[in-house]
Design a protein around this nucleic acid. Sequence first.
DNA 1: ACCATAACTGTCCGATCGGTCAGTTCTGAC
DNA 2: GTCAGAACTGACCGATCGGACAGTTATGGT
Lengths: 182, 182
Amino acid sequence: MARSASALRGQILESALRLFAVHGFRGTSLQDIASDAGCSKASLLYHFAGKEKILTELLTPARDALATLLDRVAGLAGGRLVEEAVTGYVDLALRYRREIRLLFEDIAEMSCHQDLGVLELADGLLDALAGRSQQAPARVAAWMVLGAVFITSATDDEVAPDEVLRAEMIRSALRTLDHTPS
Amino acid sequence: MARSASALRGQILESALRLFAVHGFRGTSLQDIASDAGCSKASLLYHFAGKEKILTELLTPARDALATLLDRVAGLAGGRLVEEAVTGYVDLALRYRREIRLLFEDIAEMSCHQDLGVLELADGLLDALAGRSQQAPARVAAWMVLGAVFITSATDDEVAPDEVLRAEMIRSALRTLDHTPS
DNA sequence: ACCATAACTGTCCGATCGGTCAGTTCTGAC
DNA sequence: GTCAGAACTGACCGATCGGACAGTTATGGT
């Protein structure tokens, strides 16, 4: 049944990306990918030296795109630097959305499989951060604050002392939400 | 050696939280926790119905704190709502830093174990977003943009059409960075 | 037609892990 | 001291998973 090499390889990568994005990397077995791609598990390991290599190949384009972006802004400074970095990063993140999603699915599955709905709570927080607005700009900004605080909190403490970190996070978040102090 | 029930239970939770935060939930086995807590794996499962239950118990305080926060801001509106939601969320995130970190460690380990250094690239992006500044406010804001775009990109597409999402993400990010258009 | 090689597969293996269970040790009430 | 029950443990089990390997099938060049 031997298809041309590139065909099955591509199919495997496609299946892997989709399954990883749904069940996470650890939540997807080689057999899952093989079944989805319509080949045997052994065939997977003929094309890829191991499960990790599949992930590597999947993430490499995004990695390279990021490297390219950094090269492009290397010579810039000031306002231009920030603008280019931001737009470049946003475009890159949207382009490689599925790749990013696969990185998160593991933790999403973990948070949700809990007995207690964290999802509704997150929705509630989102509503509050958006000031109960249903408009897209407010919703997007609320999502961004949600993620920003979440990730920044997970950061190593070396970025700033706790008190500074707290104050700056609040100020940054309020700016993100376009909030004018009352 | 039977210590009092609460003592070992607490020790187990403490060990689990620390190990989860370092190696992730899936990256930590019951035996790892048991060894760290100084008891047998069977003893773990005497105190907790399963591995998931340990995680649940670890995350429950943070979940409850979030629920309390949402209750507190339920009656608010406008500027007060946003301010209270933001400060409350930031305080909560910092208080439960280790719990948040454990959710991330799985993906951190996944991204870094790659053959190719994503870490240096992230550092480079961070520098660019901070406008090459080493000041704490700029660094914190850069971290927040990094996380904000990352998470928002992983969001379901239902929040906004792609073009709107892109435009709002860029505008929000620039606000976060306190960037005045040139 | 032939054959070297790439493509592919069924089967087996070792390791790991979460969880069970029967049995042992400790503790506190009487 | 005794005894009931909580606390704890060693040994074992079934399932899963990533990977190895020998063998089979398809392909393309001559």
